[in-house]
Every structure is written in structure tokens, then in C-alpha cells.
Amino acid sequence: MQILLNGLISGLSIALLAVAFQIVYLPTRIFFIGLAGLYAVAPYVGMTIQQTFGLWPISMVASVAAVVALSAAFEWANHAPLTRKNASEGAHLVSSLGLYILLVQLVAMLWGNDVKTLRTGLDATYHPFRPLDDSVLTGSQLFMFGGSVVLLAGFLVMLRTTDLGLRLRALADNPIQFALYGYNVNIHRLFAFGLAGVFATAAALLTAYDIGFDPHTGLHATLLAVVAVIIGGRSSFVGPIVGGLLLGVIRAQVVWHFSARWQDAATFVVLALFLLLRPQGLFGQKTRIEAT
């Protein structure tokens, strides 16, 4: 039970980042590695504001705002011009990789390479299932659980019920048709990037509160998120969430049965299996991948 809970909670942060990746990937087909840079920046902004003003709501709002601005800037300055030039998938991927490297190195130059933590009195432990079960959760884990569930549920509700959600799904489904109906594709893409920034910040801050951060955690977290997207299915918005949870549980089981150092090996074996046996993922429609 304890292992399952730990797995689910770390899975939630993977799911948040996977959703961030998917929000960009589905409408634009951009393999957004720059996300890893955003993930790396967020806790540093939060920490700096926290130290200046000492109020955690301000620091959270500020880091969300900063990352959303950065994410939109990535689209505005890099991906939108490349799309106008009809650049290839590979060009988007490589330039996004370049942005990631640039951003992470800037963070490292500004704030240093060492590991930092954002602990703020969340070290107390709780037994949420006391009468039934003896599992222990820390305050930061509970906080993380609540925060990510609210965000993910809010996102799904937004997608299903609001007009904006419908337009996002339409853009993901067929961008050309979407443009033909007279909607402004660029604004919606910008919005998708901004939303990805929100989710990346949430994932980064929640993880930073739980286990700390350094400039280089972003890429690893993003790779896990991408694996979650592949597991869940790359043509759906629900898939990444399920994939993230599943991956979190699998990784926790690996820690329990083998050792923490084989976590990544297991993760990428799972990725390889999915790519070979079920490339459309759990929630995807069956299409030939060569066709896309």
C-alpha cells in the first residue's frame, strides 16, 4: 500500500509534465524538449521570489507567470517562425533541444549547479488511512497529491466543457481544418504553449517541494513524461495522465523488488516494449506510425 501510494504520487508529477508535453505535441507536432528547461527554471524563480518577499503565494504566482511568459516566448521567437518557414519535425526538435541547453546553462550560471530545496515546514508526517492501513505520507506529498489532482481534473473538465477546450481539441485533431473555419491558429498555439508552461511549473514546484531541485533535473523528468505519453497514447489528452500514473507505480515497484538504481533501465525497457508492440499506446487509435 505504501509503495502503491508513493508510486501514485510520483506518478502524478510525471502525469502533470506529460500533460504539458502533450498540450504542445498534439496541436503542433512539436517535440517540445524546451519543456525541460521550463521545468528547471520554475523552482529557481520561486525560490528567489520567496527569499525576497517571503510569501509563498506570491512566489508561486510569480514562477507560473515567468514560466508561462518564457514558454510563450519560445513559441513566438522560435517555433512559430520555424513553422512559417515550413521547417521539418527534426528542425523543431533540434532547435527545442538548443533552447533547453541554453536555458539550463543560463540557470546554472545564475544560480549555481548545486542541489537546492524549497522546504517550508511541510516535513510533518500523516497517516491518512489510519484505521485501515499504516501508510505514511509527508506533508509535501499530500500537498503534491492535492495540487496535481486539482490541476489535472480542472484540465480535463476544461477540455470537455468549455468552448476553449473544444477549440484546443479541434486544433489537435486537424490544424488545417481549424484554420479554414476562421480560427486564429497562432493565438491558440500560443495559448497551448502557455498552458504547457502552467503544467510544467506545477510539476516542477511540487517536485521541488518534495525532493529538491538542481538545474539538470529537467531533462530526466521530461523524458519520463515522454515515456508516459507513449504508454498512454499520443493521440489523447487522457492517455498521458494514465501513462504517468502507471509509470510512477511501475517505478515504485522496481524500487521495491530490485533497487532504485534499476528504475531508469526498467522505464526504458517499458518504453521499448511499447514502441515495438503497441506504438499507439493504451488510449490511441491504431494507425501506422509511418503514415504520420
Binding site: 538548443g98 541554453l102 546553462q105
Partner: peptide, 19 residues
């Protein structure tokens, strides 16, 4: 760090101006 940052910047600029 600066060396790697220049690499990142080079990659971005390359994709824009000389893919």
C-alpha cells in the same frame, strides 16, 4: 556552462538560418 550555452544558441540559430 557558457560553452554549452553557446552550443544551445548555435543549434537554435542554425535551425533558423542554415538548417
Amino acid at each position: 556552462n557558457l560553452r554549452l550555452a553557446i552550443y544551445g544558441l548555435l543549434l537554435v540559430l542554425m535551425m533558423h538560418f542554415r538548417p
